[in-house]
Simulated assay, not measured.
Amino acid sequence: MEVSKRAGTFVPVSAARIQFQQLLDRHLELTAGLSENTLYQRRSVARKWLTPKWETWPVADITRNLVELWIEELNADGVGSGTIQKVYRLFNATLNHAVEDHLLQRNPARGVRLPRARPAQRHPYLTFDELAELNDAMGLRYRSLVTFLALTGLRFGEAAALRVSSIDLDGRLVHIDSAFKEVAGRLSEGDTKSHTIHTIAYPPILDAMMRELTSGRRGEDHIFRSPTSRGLRINTWRRRFWYPAIERITTRRAAESARTGQVPISFPDVTPHDLQHTAASLAIRAGAEVVAVARMLGHADSRMTLNTYAGLFTGDLTAVAETLQRDMSGSALDHALRSADLDRGFSP
């Protein structure tokens, strides 16, 4: 006991009998530097996944084997790997605090292997023609919003928070410093997802639209508003405007198919967030590099951009291969690779 006290690893018996929920509640009170949305998500994870399983468990009785079995159960029940990672991070952080407060000698969850992330599904990207079809189905009120999202890459909450003063019409620039978030049914304005302030440029084709959206309005006015002139809520907007527009497209295509006798071509299964993916795909197709696309999307790290859209940068690989071929032309290696002797070297 004396040795463990000197080493700082001694844990009183009374402390070891503390129940997990007490530690979890204490951990959730640590709110410094966290957004309201992050806090809400943490509490939701705790309420749905941690409390039902571990609420009354004495922390001293939680073993590594129990944690591993729990993770395996979640995976076997079909819980997504992303969700398991979120649940584990909060569980692990809670036990880490217990160690730091000398309520546990070691964290039994530390280093537990998690299920491998399932391969991400390919994002749907709209073409210019499909965007035109979507705009027509949206009607006049939000046609400009859909166009703006698809050509600039802003997130819905960022676009909803834009004010007239955010737009530099002469420079065709948009300054993004806040975003709307809906937390527990309440709309609030706060930092962007990446907690950064950034600036993007919009294409000249949007000049007339942006001037019309800002004309005669005060600097503090929001550019995109709800029918009641309040802030746009993504869930309400999706239900009242987005889904009906997609349904109109489906109906029109079915009618055209019946008229022509051809098999109907389904419209891509897209969400409002996929407009950001569309903007990225259009920018990459136009020749934008990874860093430029990352800045446009407000990614704090260009690695995130590359991981998300790696499959779209194949043009860069082709360009590298063609440059390599051009530089090698006429060299000794070029002659060797073209020679019959080298070909025979690969024969069985």
Rank of each mutant, 00 (worst) to 15 (best):
L95V: 00
R122I: 11
S144Q: 11
G261H: 03
R211E: 13
Y88P: 01
A208S: 14
V146I: 12
S81E: 05
L74H: 04
A258E: 13
L30Y: 03
S44M: 08
G261R: 02
S35W: 00
Y88A: 03
G216Y: 01
L342G: 03
L312M: 15
A332C: 07
T323W: 11
R233Y: 01
S215I: 08
T214W: 02
L140M: 11
W49C: 00
Q121S: 10
L28E: 00
N75E: 14
F10I: 07
P227H: 07
A319G: 05
D334I: 03
T214D: 05
P12K: 13
R163W: 05
V11K: 01
T192P: 05
L74E: 02
A332P: 08
H27S: 05
L126E: 05
T127F: 06
D191R: 09
V291G: 11
Y88G: 02
H222D: 03
G157M: 01
D316P: 00
G231H: 09
R248H: 02
G78T: 04
R217V: 04
S302Q: 14
I197G: 10
D101T: 08
Y125Q: 06
E36I: 05
D221I: 06
M138I: 03
T9C: 10
L134V: 02
T199D: 11
V263M: 12
A319Q: 14
T196L: 14
L66K: 14
A286W: 06
R6A: 15
A179S: 13
L213T: 01
L173Q: 13
L154D: 03
P227M: 07
R163F: 07
G8A: 10
L337M: 11
R172S: 07
I284H: 07
D168R: 04
L151S: 12
R141E: 02
T127D: 09
P203G: 08
L134M: 08
I249E: 01
E212H: 12
D25R: 03
G80F: 05
Y40G: 02
L131H: 05
H277L: 12
H277P: 10
A159G: 09
E130S: 06
G111Q: 04
H102D: 14
L145C: 02
F10V: 08
R218K: 14
A60R: 08
R89P: 05
E247C: 01
V3S: 14
L126P: 04
D170R: 10
Y40P: 01
R89I: 10
G261F: 01
R43I: 01
T250L: 07
